[in-house]
């Protein structure tokens, strides 16, 4: 064990945890432990201060009402914004993605987000995006897998890049983009949880947190899960193409 553990902060999981978002912390903890790296996981209760010195921040998904409550609380936490601006790795999923953007649509219409991402979110046209997703990672070309369930879109400004390019699913709803990356922030609409289904993404956050490359670690059960989800998504796409 290293003397200095990686401190993981889960931002308001009781409000921003609709899609098993705590699982992202579990994936980080698990993959860190496999390399002998210790972790601490702090779940910040709504209303409690978000520590500014954490190594990784996780912000999850929510329905509109909880998202609005979380947004109000986050406005009073400048330390969190400072930490991420200073380079602390941060994963934002679904509602979290929207909260970190410049603007998103809340219960009462458009409202400003934290502005950590050069992204504008509004409503996805047509049906809610629900289902398995496969994208091609813009980081390393691997498959990013997950499940999307959202009515929001995302338009990326010049400072943000997509996290992946959609092969199956809807993603941001524009230009085949899924998610966003900018500075130390990775953002996505993918659940699963996303770090469980995509160990490479978990390792990227951990490597940034410890400031060095990590030795490879192949988790055979997770690889099995990735094979199953990939083939399910691909056969789903084949069915959809046939119907079209």
């Amino acid at each position: 064990m290293q003397p200095d553990p990686v401190d993981i902060v889960v931002v308001y999981p009781k409000l921003l945890g609709l899609y098993g978002d705590r699982g992202n912390a579990a994936a980080l903890r698990h993959r860190a432990a496999a390399r002998g790296i210790g972790t601490t996981v702090l779940e910040v209760a709504p209303g409690d201060p978000i520590p500014e010195q954490a190594d990784i921040y996780l912000v999850g998904g929510a329905e509109d009402g909880s998202m609005a409550a979380a947004a109000k609380l986050l406005e009073r936490q400048p330390g969190f914004v400072r930490a991420v601006e200073a380079g602390a790795p941060c994963l934002a999923v679904c509602a979290g993605f929207q909260l970190l953007s410049r603007e998103y649509v809340g219960v009462d219409g458009p409202r400003p987000g934290l502005g950590l991402l050069d992204v504008t979110c509004s409503r996805l046209t047509g049906l809610r995006a629900v289902g398995e997703v496969v994208t091609r990672s813009e980081i390393d070309g691997s498959h990013l897998l997950g499940f999307e369930n959202h009515q929001g879109d995302a338009v990326l400004g010049p400072a943000a890049r997509p996290l992946g390019i959609v092969e199956v699913g809807r993603g941001n709803g524009h230009e085949g983009h899924e998610g966003a990356q900018q500075g130390s922030v990775l953002a996505t609409y993918l659940h699963g949880p996303v770090l469980v289904r995509n160990p490479a993404l978990a390792d990227l956050l951990l490597a940034r947190a410890v400031g060095r490359e990590l030795e490879p670690y192949l988790d055979s059960r997770v690889e099995q899960l990735r094979r199953e989800r990939l083939s399910a998504a691909v056969s789903l796409r084949a069915r959809l193409l046939k119907r079209a």
Binding site: Y19, D21, R22, V130, G192, P193
Partner: peptide, 9 residues
């Protein structure tokens, strides 16, 4: 439920 993410709840 088609999304089993809730296993982590």
């Amino acid at each position: 439920g088609r999304d089993p993410s809730w296993l982590y709840d």
